[in-house]
């Protein structure tokens, strides 16, 4: 082959899949709004330790449970800790759990699913049977037991939640890999004699990225919800640390007298979950227009 590479035609340059998806995403107002809220929220949570005038654990018993005022925009809790500061610190924990646990589930799920789909045959059917069986386990209950007995430890929380959430990811990735495996470019890679490892990591997984990203954005809110759920039951993050679930739990105890202590953390948590879900739905529609709306 000595043909010169053809100059790319204007039309062919066009838009890559990524650009196309990006354009569709920007047209989705709910998704853009969700993304905006998330960016602001993340930014505030990240800069809090340098910006906040209060510490998350500094108590000021003279100022116990004051309503929102100038010095404390969202009021203080019973021990006089600034609620806004605690919410932002709680956000750091909630987001951290959300991202870390999703990363754990991503790691396990993608590897497992890709292997099952790639190896195929009996190995695949055995591996997926295991997933089916694990699906029927009452995981919430097991996570609760895990948290009770192995101590309320953040790292463990990531692992426990991640270990629960990887199942769906494995199924999605396997489905993608199975369908990709039959495509010509994978067959070409096989014919070219590339190693299986290279085919798997350089070709199959990158081409399954769309659904993976979508499922990730939808997993993060689930994980944050699970963390909040555990903290609410007193099984997650412990005071004086802060997390949204914990703040809601504390707020509920005194809500008759100090409703703002439950209302503000609830709003922040719900708003974040809203944003993540809208962004996830938007990404799904943008990356796979055929997946339809449900």
């Amino acid at each position: 082959m000595d043909a010169q590479p053809q100059p790319m035609l204007e039309a062919e340059k066009g838009s890559s899949l990524g650009q196309d998806a990006w354009r569709r995403l920007r047209q989705n107002r709910a998704a853009v709004g969700g993304g905006g809220v998330l960016i602001v929220m993340l930014f505030l949570c990240v800069i809090t330790p340098w910006m906040a005038p209060y510490s998350y654990e500094a108590q000021n018993l003279e100022l116990g449970s004051v309503a929102p005022r100038q010095a404390h925009w969202l009021g203080t809790d019973q021990l006089g800790r600034d609620l806004l500061t605690r919410i932002l610190y709680g956000g750091r924990v909630s987001f951290m759990v959300g991202f870390a646990a999703t990363a754990v589930s991503l790691l396990i799920g993608v590897t497992y699913g890709a292997l099952a789909g790639f190896l195929g045959g009996r190995t695949d059917s055995v591996m997926m049977r295991v997933v089916d069986i694990l699906y029927t386990l009452p995981f919430t209950i097991l996570v609760i037991i895990l948290m009770v007995y192995l101590g309320r430890n953040l790292v463990l929380l990531f692992l426990a939640i991640g270990a629960v959430e990887w199942l769906t990811m494995a199924r999605i990735v396997r489905g993608q890999v199975m369908s990709l495996r039959k495509k010509e470019f994978i067959e070409a890679a096989v014919v070219l004699g590339y190693s299986r490892r290279r085919i798997l990591f350089r070709h199959l997984i990158p081409n399954s990225l769309g659904p993976i990203i979508v499922y990730c954005t939808l997993t993060i809110p689930q994980v944050m919800l699970l963390e909040a759920f555990l903290s609410f039951l007193g099984l997650g993050v412990q005071a004086p640390m802060s997390s949204w679930g914990l703040l809601i739990k504390e707020g509920v105890e005194t809500m008759e007298d100090f409703p703002w202590l439950v209302v503000f953390p609830s709003i922040v948590l719900s708003l974040t979950l809203f944003s993540l879900n809208f962004l996830g739905d938007g990404l799904r529609d943008a990356l796979d227009p055929r997946a339809g709306k449900d």
């Binding site: 809110p221 919800l225 909040a228 759920f229 609410f232 679930g245 809601i248 739990k249 707020g251 509920v252 809500m255 409703p259 439950v262 209302v263 609830s266 948590l269 719900s270 979950l273 809203f274 879900n277 809208f278």
Partner: peptide, 18 residues
């Protein structure tokens, strides 16, 4: 429905009580 999915029951419960 989106609100129902995004507002966890431990938020909804206290708010309803309130």
């Amino acid at each position: 429905a989106m609100a129902g999915i995004c507002i966890p029951n431990f938020v909804l419960g206290p708010l309803l009580v309130l």
